[in-house]
Design a protein around this nucleic acid. Structure first.
Lengths: 248, 248
DNA sequence: GGATACTTTCCGGCATTACCGGAAAGCTGC
DNA sequence: GCAGCTTTCCGGTAATGCCGGAAAGTATCC
């Protein structure tokens, strides 16, 4: 894509030492015509990668900061969650994940595999597992609007009637949005229990799920303790992101 | 530019909550064909605005961080210099500038105009003043290689022979590179003295010039004091940028 | 292992767009 | 007011982007 190559050429001319460039400077530096370069930088200014600071002079624009914030924030979310993930992993030796929802699928941002002899694989939430097939995914689905959920159900390759499966899923999701917690076997793994708790940001928006996956045999011994651990870790992370617990 | 508009569309889909996207997700979200979207994201990956993390999945790429660093660093340079600029301005009430060199011209990154009744305008270093016409500019020229200087001289619209003017300029620049200081009237302003000192970074590279502009009548009273002030401010800023004074 | 289903990758033809020349406009200096 | 330079604007044309469809890759199911 020649145009995109030119975009790269032009953007790279903006450095800390040379934060501002005139039009003819850019044309000369890239070897293109002035009017062609004008069309290009005007286009970049329209999308926000550049901004025009005075007649014919340009600097890097707000989209750069926005994209970098997205880059940093996703890193920031991982950084914010890391202490609790590492804490659970160190103290309990179980497999832990940090997940977000991405177009109807689960995306793992961070994962630490358990250290005990009998452990759950970190891949248990990998490979594009369907949201409804795991506790973190059901928590994400619990945040969906009715329209989003209907669309999700419509796109599932279910045998039998979708209406029935959909009703069953809706029943499953009932209450999860408020409890901010879900637990159950992931996918076709009856001997694993995966517990997930919702992480919220400074405006109480759900942003991610922290999950712990445990062999059922260990979970059965003290299931309420596991629930408290995971919920507690999620609250600590949410607090770090600016969430303030309400009266509820 | 339709391609650039698409670039903006696609890049904006990458957020902290959705840092990774598959190809068909991007195509669906933008309404373009899968193969067309593939061409586009492949192009963006080649220039570094995106990066391919696994087959058909993309995240924001290193050029975003690089451009943001350029955005931040130019801000960082202004931030690093601001205390000294503000200090000189507050303590002495004279006009101060922070400048960089930009394709054979002086670029003002920051400026504070003097507060006394008789003051030098902040515009004195504005309007694309030629480098050789002011002290900060001559300091920038002093860092030029012989080839760069020859080219600069060649491009000057001087009456009379360029050889003569060029020789005169070279004589002017002699020693500035080592002294890291220059002073003199800017442009056609015999009643103003502009003093400039070079700011260096952590690898001793010249990055900017701090300049103070003073009515000649005040400069004449204690010229060496002004020189020390400006050089001292430059050293403090350089130290903040990681420069370590050598034995020289 | 083969079939199925889906996504991604690749490639060439064609419609669309980017590119540029040149005119008009803007700005500065004399 | 003129000269010299840069930027802005616009339309014609050549180059490129866009996409359809085939091939390749991957995962799941039987």
């Amino acid at each position: 894509m020649k145009t995109i190559r030119k975009v790269g050429e032009v953007l790279r001319l903006f450095t800390a030492a040379m934060p501002e460039h005139g039009l003819s400077d850019l044309a000369r530096a890239t070897g293109h015509s002035v009017s062609g370069t004008h069309d290009l930088v005007d286009g970049l200014a329209r999308i926000g990668l550049l901004r025009r600071v005075e007649r014919g002079r340009y600097r890097l624009g707000p989209l750069v900061a926005t994209l970098n914030r997205a880059l940093q924030d996703s890193s920031a979310l991982i950084e914010a969650a890391r202490p609790q993930l590492a804490g659970l992993w160190r103290d309990y030796g179980e497999t832990v994940h940090l997940t977000v929802e991405d177009h109807g699928r689960l995306l793992v941002l961070d994962a630490l595999e358990g250290t005990q002899g009998l452990r759950v694989s970190r891949e248990v939430l990998g490979g594009g597992i369907a949201l409804h097939d795991c506790a973190p995914g059901r928590l994400h689905l619990a945040q969906y609007s009715e329209a989003q959920l209907a669309d999700y159900i419509e796109r599932q390759p279910w045998p039998g009637t979708k209406a029935r499966e959909g009703a069953r899923l809706r029943a499953d999701l009932e209450g999860l949005a408020q409890a901010d917690f879900a637990a159950g076997p992931p996918g076709p793994e009856p001997d694993v229990i995966c517990l997930g708790a919702m992480i919220r940001d400074h405006v109480a928006q759900p942003v991610a799920v922290i999950a712990m996956s445990v062999p059922r045999s260990r979970h059965e011994v003290q299931p309420r303790a596991y629930r408290s651990l995971v919920l507690g870790a999620a609250r600590e992370i949410s607090a770090r992101l600016g969430w303030v617990a309400g009266p509820g």
